[in-house]
Design a protein around this nucleic acid. Structure first.
Lengths: 348, 348
DNA sequence: TTGTAAGCGTTATCAA
DNA sequence: TTGATAACGCTTACAA
């Protein structure tokens, strides 16, 4: 691969002249500029990344650390980040901690497990001298990603940074859940069962809050028996639906699509017609929601928007000389209802 | 971040001594070795990646170019590659061309579109001085990825390299399809309809071949009316199923799960009971196959195995001084039937 | 066994 | 307007 020095010899000028031309420095005569540029183009010259990175402090590269690339929410976020980086002429390097792959569900209570892979990942990105680091979580929680005295811009996405000084971008669970509950109410439902996720999970808590607020605003009595805690898995959706049916609810709000599929399983077994005899909604707008029958009404997470917004924020931090780091700002991105066929209109 | 020079001052030795220790060179006294190692550990020293990469020729980094990270087959492959790299102490940098995002389905006939993003991607990885490049396609076809005189090890995954000299790792479509057809025959089916993908697609061709071979071996008459070409989309599965039903087939073999879902749509509409009145199988083992009712029998692609095997091959090329590059070898990885509830047993 | 110094390919500083 | 040179942090051949 041709180097600057070789190029200089070919052109009969010094390396610094070429370097200046290539970097758009003004102190070059137009005449040589054009001549050199032509030769450079023909040579197929590509600057050596290491030499450049070593010399300058900027690399125009951001590091993305993902908890697990196979988590359904991750690739759309990453794809959007990369799209934005491409627009702005940045590169992105992805580090995949593969947390689920390594430890299934056993890691998120275990701070030491996380840190044992996160710290090397961060060190590695630091040694690559990325200009900024994005942490993409697999699900929302308060999380200790970066030390408080971190030297480069960093952001946490789809979770909330414990350390202040880092912006977090998350979905607006409370509003999304509120909207969904209001939607069910607007369809005439008054007895709305809720199949929540794991109880101490942040998504669960926020979405529960949204549910309660909607009921409250509509003056609907809050019945604690109508709130059941699942574990996000299909089977738990099945089981809790059974109990909710006994309670006589007319609509079931599942906090994810997977549990909604479990609800479908039970209702199908009982020959209760979804979208007619009972209504079911989910959350996440996963691909499966279009394959369940009837198609599931659910809440879209706006994953690409999250990715794009996070990228926008961190690039602006990087270019703004990293010093308008809004202290512990939490950006909440809206979810949007996608209406399909699983809700019946009781008010008609 | 602490440098080798600073470390040398702290320890009162030269940089080369420390460098030798860190790189396991033998010409160091045990005494100083231990003393230095301790200080190094405490300092949190991390070698500068650029300096290292500039000095040596190896970076222990491989570049992964994916056609589109959002394609369902891509992340599992990438995840497995990264797992293997981690085991072997390599890093991986991911470049996402986002072909579908940019051009939907309009790019794969258009060599110039592909090259317009692929060439910069390759140049970029080259300038980063990766030790090897893996190209991960979104679907199988013969593809012009790398120039014949490419200087570093490279491999194409989930597609077949046009240029000889590059190993390709693909799924064994023909065998997978053959197995599936044999399976249907073993369940007593004699009239087996096939909903193929787009006609000039490689998956389509290979799977058609497998289907034919199975019929032939069982001395079943091949009926061309039972082969219908869809376009991989759900709607085409719906439409072709309609025609196949008119033909009176007892089983429908769809070349992907998405078209199988379309078949389900039509059969549901007609109140034909899948797994009883008719049998349907898919291909891909996408998540949706577990959510269709009844659960879809399909063929698993073994994506993680593909990723792992590709990584194994390229790392061995890299470490074997890049000169046992098997000329144009095509590695075919097996698919495996996952039996669920969409096939009835006619022979009982 | 340890230290010195050259060199990897750039960019920045400063002199010509 | 251009060119010589130092510097970035590391590894390695060679000298001590």
């Amino acid at each position: 691969m041709v180097t600057l020095k070789e190029l200089a010899q070919m052109c009969g000028v010094s390396t610094s002249t070429i370097s200046n031309i290539l970097n758009g420095k003004p102190k070059v005569s137009e005449e040589t500029r054009l001549r050199i540029l032509e030769i450079v183009k023909q040579s197929g010259y590509q600057p050596n990344y290491f030499a450049q990175g070593m010399r300058m402090q900027k690399t125009r590269m951001i590091g993305i650390i993902v908890e697990d690339l196979n988590e359904f929410s991750t690739s759309p976020i990453v794809e959007a980040i990369m799209a934005y980086c491409e627009e702005k002429n940045y590169r992105a390097i992805l580090l995949n901690m593969r947390l689920y792959d390594k430890w299934q569900d056993t890691w998120y209570d275990d701070e030491s497990k996380l840190q044992s892979v996160l710290q090397p990942a961060i060190r590695e990105l630091l040694s690559i001298k990325v200009d900024g680091i994005m942490y993409i979580a697999g699900h929302c929680r308060v999380i200790n990603c970066f030390p408080e005295d971190f030297t480069i811009p960093a952001i946490v996405v789809y979770a909330i940074s414990k350390a202040p000084g880092f912006t977090s971008v998350v979905i607006d669970d409370e509003k999304g859940s509120y909207d969904m509950t209001r939607y069910l109410i607007s369809m005439g439902h008054r007895k709305i069962g809720l199949i929540a996720g794991i109880e101490d999970n942040l998504h669960t808590q926020k979405r529960s809050l949204g549910y309660q607020r909607a009921l409250f605003e509509e003056q609907l009595l809050f019945n604690p028996d109508w709130i059941r805690y699942g574990n996000w898995q299909r089977q738990s959706g099945y089981e809790e639906t059974k109990k909710l049916i006994e309670e006589g609810v007319t609509a079931i709000f599942c906090m994810n699509d997977t549990m909604a599929a479990g609800a479908y399983d039970y209702l199908y077994e009982c020959n209760i017609k979804i979208g007619q005899d009972i209504s079911v909604v989910g959350y996440d707008n996963k691909e499966i929601s279009e394959y369940l029958r009837p198609n599931l009404t659910t809440s879209d997470l706006g994953l690409p928007e999250i990715g794009r917004e996070s990228a926008r924020i961190i690039l602006s931090m990087m270019e703004g000389d990293c010093e308008k780091r809004n202290e512990h700002e939490i950006v909440r991105m809206p979810c949007s209802i996608v209406e399909r066929a699983s809700v019946s209109n009781l008010s008609e």
